[in-house]
Design a protein around this nucleic acid. Structure first.
Lengths: 228, 228
DNA sequence: GCAAAAGTGTTACCGGTACACCCATGT
DNA sequence: ACATGGGTGTACCGGTAACACTTTTGC
């Protein structure tokens, strides 16, 4: 492997920043950390990290997520690259923003707390360092796009969930109250979910059937069908 | 400006690659060049370039476009970052793909020819180096998305155009024949275009009215209306 | 019985699709 | 007159929104 052909061209610090979404207590939340480097040490920021020599941007984001929420196999997608030369005040860093979806009760909360991470409702974010607020805004747009074009929920809900829970998840993602009757019919028409035999009796007297995603659920098979 | 805080973290070559679309002779076309460096020197590739120290990714893409098609003020949008460590066989380069839209008769064709650039129909692309085919595929998806959510044409058509031309542009973008009557009604319902007094008599005996985009056309004002 | 959440049914409306049909004009 | 592309009209169908209604069960 000849290592000389591109010498003379500049090299740049490249980082990733992760917008980690979860669904908890009826709200869509984002994971934030107090920044542990100067400048702006202590201010709220997304968790990120520099890209190492032998890893892709996705590899780097997965490494960061493993270190922060303790999970492999997370849904992860590029949001956008942020590359203004002065986006960080002291030194140039190009950062690729990713968004990730994790289920609230599957992640390692001790690990999160050990790094002083906190979950903030998307509707009530604190001031953030650099362009991180911008990253979250665009990540939310991507999430809404994804939720409009396929039935979302596998990554954000427990393995078994009721249609009302799914309804509330969509309400939280779009900040809009979808009619329960219509929502239910829409979901049924997609023929994606499987109804289970047992019911959730915790949040209603009557009890609501639990549903699950099929084991080999492939969103692409149902793409272009959903339009919320 | 303290230049020392991130020392120890690796720096990486960062490049941009441009998927330049135009609409010509009823076809959507992409601009390709014979690669002028080893490896794969002479094979077809997108035009690209390395990112300099004091420019953003967008700045770099605009610089490349100015050098290749001789235009400022081009519509430009990020597609995705390609970052597999081995995506180029000899040395690691992270590349941000952009797509650009230019009007066929406004660009500098001598400049294109001077660099041996050629326009290929999107339906008939030659083999491409590295992951450039992948970049074009995703860029086309983005273009289709954009064309679904706003009325596209200002960047790809002459300033005055007929509804049939616009219809054909959409046909080329989606590789699908939209019904002329329905297309025309759909466009009319958006209340975006302005009808001019003069007609195009070149392609029909009756003559077809020319339309224009308003001077201060803002796609966002009409966003979420169009759904082709 | 009643409140509360689950789940079903009804209806009106809007937008897309398919396709038939007129219009203007150069040859 | 007729072929050609421009442009209009209509009838149907499916999805969505709004909302009334029934069901189940714990208190």
């Amino acid at each position: 492997m000849a290592k000389t052909i591109y010498t003379g061209y500049p090299k740049i610090h490249v980082a990733v920043d992760c917008v980690v979404f979860t669904y908890d207590n009826g709200q869509l939340k984002v994971l934030l950390y107090p920044r542990n480097l100067e400048p702006y040490k202590g201010d709220w920021s997304l968790m990120g990290g520099f890209v190492a020599n032998q890893e892709s941007l996705e590899d780097a984001a997965r490494r960061v997520l493993l270190q922060t929420v303790g999970l492999h196999d997370i849904f992860l997608e590029q949001v956008a690259a942020f590359s203004q030369p002065d986006r960080e005040p002291t030194e140039r860093v190009i950062s690729m923003a990713f968004y990730a979806l994790i289920c609230n009760d599957s992640h390692n909360s001790e690990l999160v707390e050990a790094h002083k991470g906190e979950w903030f409702p998307i509707t009530d974010l604190p001031p953030l360092v650099f362009d991180h607020k911008n990253m979250i805004d665009i990540a939310l747009q991507r999430l809404q796009y994804k939720a409009s074009h396929e039935l979302l929920g596998r990554e954000l809900l427990p393995s078994k969930f009721t249609l009302t829970q799914l309804n509330n998840l969509y309400n939280a993602i779009f900040q809009h109250t979808f009619d329960p009757g219509n929502f239910r019919k829409k979901v049924a028409s997609l023929n994606v979910l499987l109804q289970t035999a047992d019911k959730d009796t915790a949040s209603s007297k009557k009890g609501a059937y639990f549903y699950v995603f099929p084991h080999n659920y492939e969103p692409k098979d149902y793409c272009q069908i959903v339009k919320f």
